[in-house]
């Protein structure tokens, strides 16, 4: 049952890759298994938890809900591409500052979703953040501090833009 292989080109975190992938390989499998970008997590098998959220051409997507071949020609950004220990993204900083993570498993997906949410809105309030994060599950925090972090991250992102 050899899966059909396809050639794809994509940029991941600014690095170009030319890859041959099985047609049925999910984008998250490509990221985690082939590119060893293990910051993107898999928490479910029904596209509900959002732990696998990455940016595809600047938009948050669940990378378990796309085939790798669908990212052909696209820019992918994962949590590793957002910021590292030497230079954190304001949203990463806000998550740490607000204690918006405990076990950390949902965190990369939450941050990726939160950044996209802020970038595509003008001024989110608490309710808008809660609704905007509906597709990302967290079992540790009760969301309380995640909401605080996204609002704080939003402020910091806006300040950066000024």
């Amino acid at each position: 049952m050899a899966a059909l292989n396809k050639h794809i080109h994509l940029r991941v975190n600014g690095v170009s890759h030319a890859l041959e992938v099985p047609a049925n390989m999910l984008l998250v499998e490509l990221l985690r298994q082939r590119l060893r970008l293990t910051g993107t997590h898999v928490g479910c098998d029904t596209c509900q938890c959002g732990a696998c959220t990455v940016h595809l051409d600047g938009r948050a997507v669940k990378s378990c809900a796309l085939f790798a071949v669908q990212a052909d020609g696209c820019r992918v950004c994962t949590i590793e591409g957002i910021g590292g220990p030497g230079g954190l993204h304001p949203m990463q900083e806000a998550f740490r500052d607000c204690h918006a993570l405990q076990c950390g498993f949902c965190t990369p997906g939450m941050i990726m979703r939160a950044i996209d949410l802020v970038e595509r809105s003008d001024g989110l309030d608490e309710q808008a953040v809660r609704e905007g994060l509906e597709g990302n599950l967290c079992r540790c925090t009760g969301y309380h501090n995640i909401i605080k972090a996204v609002l704080q991250g939003q402020e910091a992102m806006e300040a950066d833009d000024d």
Binding site: T38, G39, T40, Q92, R96, D97, L101, G104, P108
Partner: peptide
């Protein structure tokens, strides 16, 4: 005190078993 474990989790550098 801010958590020292957070830096690895917010940058995707955590190492869970499946990683």
């Amino acid at each position: 005190v801010k958590r020292r474990e957070d830096l690895r989790f917010i940058t995707g550098a955590g190492t869970y078993t499946d990683d």
